[in-house]
Simulated assay, not measured.
Amino acid sequence: MPQSGRKAIWLAAGAVLVAGLAIGIWLGWRPAVSAPPALESLVIATNTDYLGACPVVAARDQGYFRAQQLHVQLQPHSSGKQALGAMLSRQADMATVADIPIAFAALSGTPVQVFGTIFRTSQDHGVVARRDHGIRQAADLKGKLIGVTLGTSGHFALEVFLNRLHLDTDDVQLRNYPPDRLMPALLAGEVDAVSAWEPFLGLAEQRLGATALRFSGQDIYESIYNMVAPSAYLRQHPQTAVRLLRALEQGERYCREHPAAASAFLKQLTPEGRKALLATWPSHHFGLELDQSLLLVLEDQSRWAIKQGLSSANKVPNFLDYIYLDGMKAVNPAEVTVIY
């Protein structure tokens, strides 16, 4: 073979070798493509009859949890206090709960943390009284027997309401009931009035008809509805919290933008009740946040619980210890206004 031919063959072989080395180097140095997270199952204890649970229900029903590789089971309860109890007894991984049970958990040193607020409203607490028990105006509650679930937001809201009337709990008689026993007690006439939240108040009004007299005030109490989990769970599953919050962000947006469809999960509503709820829908706040106001409310509620002898604690906790910031800082840092 002529020398020029051998030279051409060697040049071609060298080019192939260089190309092969280059491809090998590129394959060895290119970033590894991470596999999507495995589908993770978790249980959320929540009050599925409460409007504030809408972002959680929407995230499940609209597939937002599934899109984040989460298989979520909703465990129904009649109050946030019960939902929190289920979580603490390890029947659930997380819970939705208003502010008051969080304050009591902190007073007892229970290691739980709020990792997102999903709903606020000032219109879902109040008192429903029976006109046929001699109650025509709010002042007539003095001396009356009022059903309430002690240690809940209904209890706290009643205390604030009575203070506005220049009364306190010594001026009325309180009878403690589980949340789902309040309405039967009122309907049966066991009590003169009940202090509670929706949907119990609306259902009691519907059942009593003209006999019902409702008292409420938008400036008395704002319910702040939150996602909570054990502190250890959040430390061990930080990415689960992030994925869950991303799904809830879509869920709360769905609740804001599609009220008629979103309200369908409230099965107990009558057509009239649903119409009334939709009329007030814009006044309820669906939004994912961690706001400094939550800490201030928890501090006020803790002082109230200590003063009333509802807790054996003698000082207000540092509520920063009961807030988990990392999840929200990863998902929507602009909505984190907690001072830390």
Rank of each mutant, 00 (worst) to 15 (best):
Y64C: 09
P271K: 11
L167N: 02
H284Q: 13
R30V: 12
W10Y: 15
T211G: 06
R246P: 01
L84M: 14
R256D: 05
Q218V: 09
P259I: 13
L296H: 13
G327H: 02
A13E: 03
A276L: 12
T48E: 05
R60N: 09
D93Y: 03
M183K: 12
S108W: 08
C54S: 06
H77N: 12
T280S: 14
S34V: 15
D192R: 04
G327Y: 01
L248H: 08
P259Q: 12
H284S: 07
F286G: 02
L21P: 03
A313Q: 10
M328L: 15
L320V: 04
S283L: 14
L325D: 06
S89Q: 07
D171A: 11
T149A: 08
D300Q: 13
Q218G: 11
R131M: 08
A15L: 15
D124N: 14
H125L: 14
E222N: 11
G154T: 06
E198I: 01
A188Q: 10
L295Y: 11
E198A: 06
L39D: 05
L11H: 02
A83N: 05
G251F: 04
R274D: 06
S312V: 15
A12I: 09
L141Y: 05
Y177F: 15
R164S: 07
H258C: 07
A264H: 13
N226V: 11
D61R: 14
R131I: 10
R303G: 01
Y340N: 08
V43E: 00
S312E: 13
G24E: 06
I323K: 03
D49T: 15
S302W: 07
G151N: 01
H155K: 01
I100H: 06
R274W: 02
G80C: 00
A12V: 12
P101T: 01
L42E: 07
V18P: 08
S302R: 02
Q268Y: 11
S293N: 10
S122P: 06
D180E: 12
T110V: 14
V336S: 02
M328A: 12
Q301E: 14
W26V: 13
I23Q: 00
D49E: 15
T48F: 04
D300T: 12
Q123V: 07
Y322M: 02
A103E: 07
I118S: 01
P2G: 14
L278N: 10
R214H: 12
A35G: 02
V43L: 07
D49P: 06
F200R: 00
G273S: 12
A138N: 06
R235C: 02
P333M: 09
D321H: 13
G147S: 01
A19F: 10
G28E: 13
D168G: 10
P282Y: 08
W197R: 11
F104D: 02
K275P: 04
L234V: 05
I44Q: 04
